[in-house]
Design a protein around this nucleic acid. Structure first.
Lengths: 210, 210
DNA sequence: AGCTATATCACGCTTATAGGGGGAAATCAC
DNA sequence: GTGATTTCCCCCTATAAGCGTGATATAGCT
């Protein structure tokens, strides 16, 4: 396959050894071609537009602008380019920030080379490759607590409160009296040991009751 | 490998052909053993406890109790059992409901048999297997809109509003005057063409501005 | 250097809302 | 048939929400 038909890849990674190692390994694949690599986001941003890649492998911990903050800047410059995080960090916070900012996939660095080129291919095909540990974090974030002290109705009302609805709007939407909603909210506050909407929402989200 | 050391699998699926097909194919794998299969959730719930599986393959569209509603009931009965959705439906709503209710993975039925037994193994190892299309839906749900009309500060304030905070609490937390927050909120409402917290939150979430 | 967007703060006004007190009746599920 | 849940009632006070109509300072961009 000629280089022009391969997936054009750029690497942004500050460690020279890793950068060159990945470049070598990815170029060894028949379907990928590393067209550029940078050690800082600042450097990449000034030079990326001249030679736009299909996929960017992006580290998180970088000197200057972090990989997380780089995502929207790169997306702004090259809207069609897919960004694949490639990092050792797998905290829930970093994963969510990266995905919110627009990353298309998230790999941790222990992934073997075959997985990396497979992931590059998958992201090009519109997929969303993740390492197993990342998938677990993401799925777990959806799981609700099954030991909520709140009843079905109370949970329903608290969900609507967390959508910013007033008590009277909730009453209308649930076809019950305002007094009923007030009563439920009193019980919710009592069960959660809080005295405000804000604290009730925070409590419930922290404990995954909603 | 003796059957006792294999991963014990139960299938809940109303289509007899599919049920028997999967049973045959999974039993052909050296690491998995189908110990029971049911055509309804009702049937499964009365008989599952006697012979608890490690993993349950669960369809969504079933007569009577749906696969979605079955998840919390099964989890309640067998807290340690992993539930793997195996269905043709891949709408965002169903995927989120299944995961919220406690499913550990989600496969669409075009997955080939090798992938199914791999997924069973992965879920047993604490992973979260997903088909490529499901991973895409999940990741996409995290992506924020990069074309928000709101400024950074406005977005920040709207996020806090969506956490249920009052204007005065937001002012305190951001170390600015209440009047400033009021002013920002006025601008937010104007930009989003809304006239209440509720509508602002809904607009912003629908458009992924927050 | 100048312009625009952004962020900050001010004052007045009205109505609705939030939170808490202390009840009670009907209905559902186990 | 008993306890949990859901529904509704009346009282009260403080404040929060939303809107109108402003001003000023600063930061970023070209």
């Amino acid at each position: 396959m000629s280089n022009e038909n391969k997936i054009q890849v750029t690497i942004i990674e500050d460690d020279k050894t890793i950068r060159e190692g990945f470049t070598y390994l990815i170029n060894a694949s028949p379907k990928c071609n590393v067209i550029s690599s940078f050690s800082t986001v600042e450097d990449a941003l000034t030079k990326l537009q001249a030679n736009a890649p299909n996929v960017i492998l992006l580290d998180i911990e970088l000197p200057g602008i972090s990989g997380i903050d780089a995502i929207p800047k790169i997306k702004n410059l090259l809207p069609k380019t897919h960004i694949l995080m490639l990092t050792v960090y797998d905290t829930e916070e970093l994963v969510f920030k990266a995905l919110s900012n627009g990353a298309s996939g998230y790999l941790t660095k222990n992934s073997n080379t075959e997985k990396i080129t497979d992931a590059i291919q998958e992201v090009m095909d519109g997929g969303a490759p993740m390492s197993m540990n990342i998938a677990k974090i993401v799925i777990k974030s959806f799981h609700k607590n099954t030991n909520s002290p709140l009843t079905k109705r109370e949970t329903e009302i608290l969900e609507q409160i967390s959508e910013g609805k007033s008590r009277s709007k909730i009453a209308k939407d649930l076809f019950v009296d305002l007094e009923t909603v007030k009563s439920h909210i009193k019980n919710i506050y009592s069960k959660l040991n809080v005295h405000s909407r804000e604290d009730a929402i925070k409590q419930a989200k922290d404990n995954k009751y909603i």
